[in-house]
Computed example of a mutant assay.
Amino acid sequence: MALLDVSEILLDPDFMDEGLICTRSTQTVGETGRAVAITQPTTFAGVVTSDKGDLLERFAGGERKKGSIKVHTVFPLTSGTGSITADIVTWLGRDYTVVNVDDYRHFGEGFVCAYCDLIPLKG
């Protein structure tokens, strides 16, 4: 185990944003044999930084805007496992899909770094 407890910084009110919402969906099989999604929104705190930022991609047929952020938090975000789909993080009124999660549980209390892409892509 590492000796540096980075989670202390993540919980510092000077860095932390308490207005994050995680919407987690679990899929089950309904009575008709079709997939049924059960969603559960949860408020959590974390440090949000720019990943690649907002990018404008231009193509011959048009253009689209995409964006991404990184969220460092002690809340266990997921990019999807088994019956759980990728978490949706809402920050400043924009929705992002968690596409990758780096696990740093070996630093003190532990935390994750989640890479999130803006949804929907706008073009």
Rank of each mutant, 00 (worst) to 15 (best):
G110Q: 08
T26G: 09
S7Q: 13
I21W: 05
I9F: 12
D102V: 02
P120W: 08
R94K: 07
V36F: 01
G108R: 08
L11T: 05
T90E: 12
V71D: 00
R58Y: 06
T85Y: 01
V29W: 15
S7T: 12
S25R: 07
Q27Y: 09
L20Y: 05
G46I: 00
T49N: 05
V101K: 08
L10N: 02
D95V: 04
S7M: 04
S50A: 12
F44P: 00
V98C: 01
R105Q: 07
C116F: 15
S50Y: 10
H106C: 06
V99Q: 05
D51Q: 07
L56C: 03
A2K: 14
R105D: 07
G110M: 05
N100W: 12
R105A: 10
G19E: 13
T85S: 04
G19V: 02
G93C: 04
K122P: 01
A60T: 13
I38G: 01
S25T: 05
E8H: 06
A37T: 04
T43H: 13
V47N: 00
L56M: 15
G62Q: 07
T42P: 03
L11E: 14
S79R: 02
I21H: 02
V36E: 11
I119D: 03
A37L: 08
Y115R: 13
A114W: 01
E63R: 03
C113P: 03
E109C: 04
A35P: 09
L20M: 05
V48N: 06
V89C: 02
V101M: 08
E31L: 14
G80W: 01
A114V: 03
V6M: 12
E57W: 10
A60P: 02
L56S: 12
R34M: 06
M1R: 14
L3K: 11
Y115E: 14
R105Y: 15
F111N: 06
E31D: 15
L20H: 02
Y104F: 10
D14M: 12
S79D: 15
K70M: 04
Y115W: 15
V112Q: 07
S50N: 11
D54L: 08
T49G: 13
Q27A: 08
Q27F: 11
D14N: 09
E8N: 10
